[in-house]
């Protein structure tokens, strides 16, 4: 029994190699059929070769296993890799079923957390900051975002070894803290959206209808209720629009484009 188990122990050099490959190669092979399958194999192939030995039937078997469908957040993928390698290093090919079910079981949750944090919240918070500064011609916000992204890369680099040490227990330990962090970050996100609606949608009513001899300044009247009511209304309208069946973000963008061209063209609304 013990003979079949691999004797290779991963070194710091291995971890660095996996991280390098993860940062620069993980998603290059992304395809519709099995998404990040080849990327996952690529990040750990040198280590698999060391664990099982070149041209062994075990290696071939595990390479096939890792070529199966895989898709998760590219900010968290090395957590799964770390847990995976800890298992394969100890159990070798006998750990195949464990590894397979672990990969399938974890990729969904990590995709969801990763997308909500790194594809939605971070771009909202830093993108909003960068954009509101860039709007005035100031590049500082964009540079702050780059710095933040480099810090995130450090975090991506560190998590592999962490996950390798802690194994599956890491996921259960981390879930509470991650959920709390995500929830708090959404508070900032929602707050920032409110702030952006008030500053970045630069349109106003230009229409001044004449009632008898009195001209009615709609924008001025609205300002007395609350400033920026029109931007808020537009956002509310699109929010409602997006709730409709078959509506996509691209369609919504095109609808707003056409509506604004028409209303702006006949002079009902204007740019501030």
């Amino acid at each position: 029994m013990t003979n079949s188990k691999p004797k290779y122990k991963l070194t710091d050099k291995d971890f660095n190699q996996i991280n390098r490959r993860s940062l620069f190669g993980f998603q290059l092979g992304w395809n519709y059929e099995r998404m990040q399958n080849s990327g996952y194999l690529y990040t750990i192939l040198p280590q698999l070769r060391k664990i099982y030995g070149d041209d062994s039937p075990e290696l071939k078997e595990m390479m096939k296993t890792h070529m199966q469908f895989f898709n998760t957040s590219n900010f968290f993928n090395t957590i799964i890799t770390g847990i995976d390698l800890a298992v394969e290093e100890n159990e070798g090919i006998e750990g195949k079923d464990t590894v397979e079910s672990m990969k399938v079981g974890l990729m969904g949750p990590f995709a969801a957390i990763g997308d909500s944090i790194f594809a939605s919240l971070i771009p909202t918070i830093f993108g909003a900051l960068a954009a509101s500064m860039a709007h005035e011609g100031n590049p500082v916000g964009a540079i702050i975002w780059v710095v933040a992204c480099l810090l995130i890369c450090v975090f991506r680099w560190k998590q592999l070894h962490f996950a390798y040490d802690k194994g599956v227990s890491l996921v259960t330990d981390m879930r509470d803290r991650l959920n709390a962090l995500t929830d708090s970050a959404t508070v900032l996100g929602v707050f920032m959206v409110g702030a952006l609606v008030a500053t970045m949608v630069n349109i106003k009513f230009a229409w001044v209808p004449q009632i008898g001899k009195v001209s009615m300044n709609i924008q001025n009247n609205l300002d007395m209720i609350i400033p920026k009511l029109l931007p808020a209304a537009v956002v509310g309208f699109v929010y409602w629009l997006l709730g409709k069946k078959g509506m996509t973000s691209t369609k919504a963008i095109l609808i707003v484009l056409v509506l604004c061209v028409v209303l702006g063209g006949i002079g009902v609304i204007a740019k501030i």
Partner: peptide, 13 residues
């Protein structure tokens, strides 16, 4: 005008 209003879509999404 549309150029000035389009950010609203991003916020709604």
């Amino acid at each position: 005008v549309a150029g000035a209003a389009l950010p609203a879509v991003g916020f709604a999404i």
